[in-house]
Structure formats: structure tokens, C-alpha cells
Simulated assay, not measured.
Amino acid sequence: MNHDGWLSALAQELRRRGVGGDAVRQVVAEAAVHLRESGGDPARVFGAPGTYAAAVAESVGRPPRRPGEVLLHACGITKKYGRHTVLRDVDLVVRSGQIAAVIGANGCGKSTLLSICAGITGADKGEVRVRGSLGYCPQDGGTADFLDADEHFVLVGAGRGMTREESARIGSARAAALDWAPGRGRQARHLSGGTRQKLNLVLAGLGEPDVLLLDEPYQGFDKGTYLDFWHQVWEWREAGKAIVVVTHLLNQLDRVDTVLELSPVRKAAA
């Protein structure tokens, strides 16, 4: 089946499963981009239209699950670098089964807020409470130059109570879901920026943490990989996790449950 025929069959299957018209158009458009970018056979990339439509319907074709208990609560976060205030009295509450987007102009403290929530950067004022375990995908860094992907999986997995075999198996499966086959022995320093972000994203999800902090996790991804990323995020939401995604792409806000918009902190009047 060619691309157009597969996409048409996908749309029919989605409608048959009760997926709304807007969601059908969005899913088909994203699948078309993925196929165009990958150039692959639709059956190999996605499987049969009915099988793929069933998986999509589970994540986007029904109302999101009702949010549960609060898993992340950042209250009154203030951070200064020298005389420059980056964040002032910022609050963020994310519940189980909820995706929160953090948006705002460059320099307004999005990455700093996530780093504070992850416990990497200290706040000058305020408190962060996390219920359960936490996974963090930074915008920069996060990988060790002289380790390959499997070594990263084993190292991070060990810190989360996973066996060597389990870490390698799950890490490789999560990488494959992002259209990446890690090469054994290929050190992280030789990976492209986009592939390093795929590695960071896989590491963030190892051990099934309760809270996931994702700082522009798709930096360097090709357009087709966005679909894979958002399906992973929707699966995490359905599993009852709390997810925070820093993004500057405002057209993605219909995919999340709550939005925190940060603005540059203005100097107080003298």
C-alpha cells in the first residue's frame, strides 16, 4: 500500500473508532510528515492502519484521564544570578496523569525552573516537593562523552534498581521507538545533537519515574520523530505520571493539560 492509500485507511479507521475530526486531521498530518521524512514503507514504520489507529485512539481519541494526586509542587520559586532576577515567586502544580507545558521567551527562566525542580540548581527562595521518583531530560549535557548508549542505560538503570540486562533491553526498546538503533561501542561524543537528545529522553524514562521533567527534549529531532515523542508522553500520562515539558512551539499546546507561561522579570522601580 502506498503512502496516500495507507493514510486514507488510517483516517477511516480513526473515525470508525470514534476519534474526533480535528484529532484525525492532526494524527494523519503528523503521520504524513513522518512518512515523508523517513521515506519508509508505511507498514514497516507504523504497522497496519487498523493496529496503529487502535493505539492512537487509546491515547488521543478519548478524554484525558482525570488528574490524580499532586506529584510535583513548586511554590514561590525565586532565583537570582548576581543582581539579575531570573524567576520571581513562580508556582507550578502538576498532578498524576497530567502534562504541563512551560512556555515563555528566551531568558525568562524555563530551563532554570526545571533544573530547580530536578534538584540540580538551588533556589534562592521557595520550595519544591516531589512525590515519588523523578526523571530529567536536560536541554544540554546529561550524557558522558566516553560512554556508549548501552553503558548509559546500565549506569542510569543501576541507580534506579534495574538489572544490567533489564536496563539494556528496555533502553534499546525505547530508543527503537524513537527511530534510533544505538550502535554498540559508539561513544556519546560521536553522536549528533538530536541523537544525544534521544539518549537523554530514554534515560529520563528508565525505571518508570513518577515525575518527568523534559526541557525542550526534541531539540535536533527530525520532524517525523515528534510524533514518536508525543505518543511516548501520552503513554506516560495514561500511566498516571506527571510530565513537565518546556517548549517554545506554541502549536503544541493543544496536546497538554495545563500551561505555565513565564515572563521576563522586570526590575523593581527605585
Rank of each mutant, 00 (worst) to 15 (best):
V102W: 04
V128H: 02
N251P: 06
V130L: 11
A32Y: 02
C75D: 11
G18D: 03
L178P: 00
L199Y: 02
I120T: 01
P138Y: 05
E127H: 11
H231G: 11
G183Q: 12
R174K: 15
V19C: 04
M162A: 09
W234G: 08
A55G: 10
Y218S: 15
A29F: 11
R174P: 00
C75N: 08
G82V: 04
V28Q: 02
P138R: 06
A181V: 13
A11F: 02
G240N: 14
H190E: 13
W230R: 09
D215G: 01
A204P: 02
R62L: 14
T258S: 12
D148V: 04
A57C: 07
I243Y: 03
H231F: 15
L92H: 09
L262I: 07
G161H: 10
F153L: 02
Q232G: 12
T195M: 06
E13Y: 11
S8D: 15
G193F: 06
P63W: 07
T225N: 14
L213K: 05
R83E: 00
T121V: 11
F153H: 01
S111L: 08
V24H: 04
R164Y: 07
E165K: 13
V90M: 08
G76Y: 06
V256W: 01
H152E: 04
K110M: 03
R131P: 03
P264N: 09
G122D: 13
D4M: 09
H231C: 09
S263I: 09
C137H: 00
E127I: 09
T78D: 04
D91K: 07
W180H: 07
A100L: 03
V60H: 00
G207M: 12
L191Y: 05
L71H: 06
A168E: 07
Q98S: 03
Y52V: 05
